[in-house]
């Protein structure tokens, strides 16, 4: 089954497009890494896929439905760059955060024992069940990202979308974090990972999308290393910036 469809999509916050004529699709069980220089439209692409913006042109679909109108919200788990910057002082435990994954299922009803059981299970899967009653702000960056993945698991997501999840995570924990993603993918989770660390993407994912406004490469990591896509995508960006300065 096709989880993500991006067809001929263009989008810009202003008149100049950030994403242009992009076409690709992601099938169930794939592990796809998205790389590209800063400002290349990676995060924008994710937001289009998640339905947070409507494309100016083209079609974006999740599980075969237009993602703006997508209703099975619990099928998508979203892990962003550390959000605790904005909520430094907020008292909330890891268990409470992970339980949020159940909220789309529960709606206006009450959280039941089944929801709590799934929360505990998700915490065990990502290996932080011993931190359940800790304040989330007391966790390290790596542990926090695990908590956000657990939130997606608790919501029974089929598709995990991650936007530069390793920003602010110490090098030691990054390795363990990618191992966790590998494990989830082995269990059938579809993963779309936006990542600045090209090495990590080449090492862990099955498929690489390299973009800078347009799609420069779409294929397996081994082929990517042999191609000149990296130079083209990153090089053009440098020239553009130079051209922009008066």
């Amino acid at each position: 089954m096709t989880h993500i469809t991006v067809e001929d999509v263009s989008f810009g916050y202003t008149a100049s497009p950030v994403v242009q004529d992009m076409t690709f699709s992601v099938e169930e069980g794939e592990y796809v890494g998205v790389i590209g220089p800063n400002g290349s439209g990676k995060s924008t692409l994710l937001q289009l896929i998640l339905g947070l913006y409507a494309p100016d042109q083209g079609i974006v679909e999740l599980f075969g439905r237009p993602s703006r109108a997508f209703v099975d919200r619990d099928r998508v788990g979203y892990v962003a760059q550390d959000v605790t910057e904005n909520t430094k002082e907020m008292p909330i435990t890891v268990a409470e955060v992970v339980l949020m994954g159940r909220f789309p299922h529960v709606g206006f009803g009450r959280v039941g024992s089944d929801d709590r059981e799934r929360t505990r299970e998700a915490l065990r899967t990502v290996g932080i069940d011993h931190l359940a009653e800790r304040k989330i702000t007391k966790l390290s960056g790596g542990q926090r990202q695990r908590a956000y993945i657990a939130r997606a698991l608790a919501g029974e997501a089929d598709l995990l979308v991650l936007d530069e999840p390793t920003v602010g995570v110490d090098a030691e924990s990054v390795g363990a974090f990618f191992d966790l993603l590998d494990g989830l993918n082995d269990d059938g989770m579809t993963i779309l990972l936006v990542e600045h660390d090209v090495e990590a993407v080449l090492e862990h994912t099955d498929r690489v999308l390299c973009l800078n406004r347009e799609l420069y490469f779409d294929g397996p990591p081994a082929e990517f290393a042999d191609s000149d896509a990296l130079e083209r995508a990153y090089g053009i960006n440098t020239r553009q910036r130079e051209g922009a300065t008066p």
Binding site: G51, R73, A80, M100, P104, G155
Partner: peptide, 11 residues
Amino acid sequence: TFDETAARVAG
């Protein structure tokens, strides 16, 4: 309150 973007993604 905790995470506005994730809340939007969650529908």
